[in-house]
Amino acid sequence: MPLLACRRLAFRLAAGAAAALVAVPALAADPAADLVSATAAQAIEIVKTTTGAQRQAAIQQVLQTRFDLPYMAQTALGTHWAKATPEQQARFVKATETAEAKAYAERFGQYSGQTLTVGKTTSRPNGVFIVDSRLNQSNGQPIKLDWEVRQVAGGLRITDVKIEGVSMVMTRRSDFNSYIQQNGGKVQPLIDELESRAAR
């Protein structure tokens, strides 16, 4: 039967995106898992107490303090990062940050009491922690969320979220790369597009 193949993907993405950061506090012993739990708890609090532009600003605040946004932006731009001027890089990071905050604020509009169970943390030799978690829904299967956490100068930061295996950063990377290819391999049109979307 056609269509079956990507139903799971889209369905789980949907629910996952709807409540990616929503959580119950978990009793985790390691700092990486603590970071994930704290971020999720903070996001729930924001969704419950704020709306509109205020919510977006609060979400942006969480992204800035809990996530390593410049690193994520750099990864998402891939090989094009090195080709961009420092001024372009700064504008790109700013534009993606606003876009993410906007997207998350909208997704959380659909919050309906999902909880996050934080599972085990895997430590990799290259300094990356992978925190496994499950997003429990009131109806339907739980959604698998994996968090990539890294040690940076200011402490631990989240550098990627994988929803049912779909990495947000890698998806962005494909998306941006394709857009750049279609615009003569230049980064500027992408930055312009992201900035005009952020202004909307």
Binding site: C6, A10, L13, A14, A15, T171, D175, N177, S178, E193
Partner: peptide, 19 residues
């Protein structure tokens, strides 16, 4: 069932096909 996810990907991508 895919409504939310597809809408989300479409809205938050610059090249929906590639995303």
């Amino acid at each position: 069932r895919t409504m939310f996810a597809l809408d989300d990907i479409e809205k938050n991508s610059v090249d929906y096909y590639a995303a």
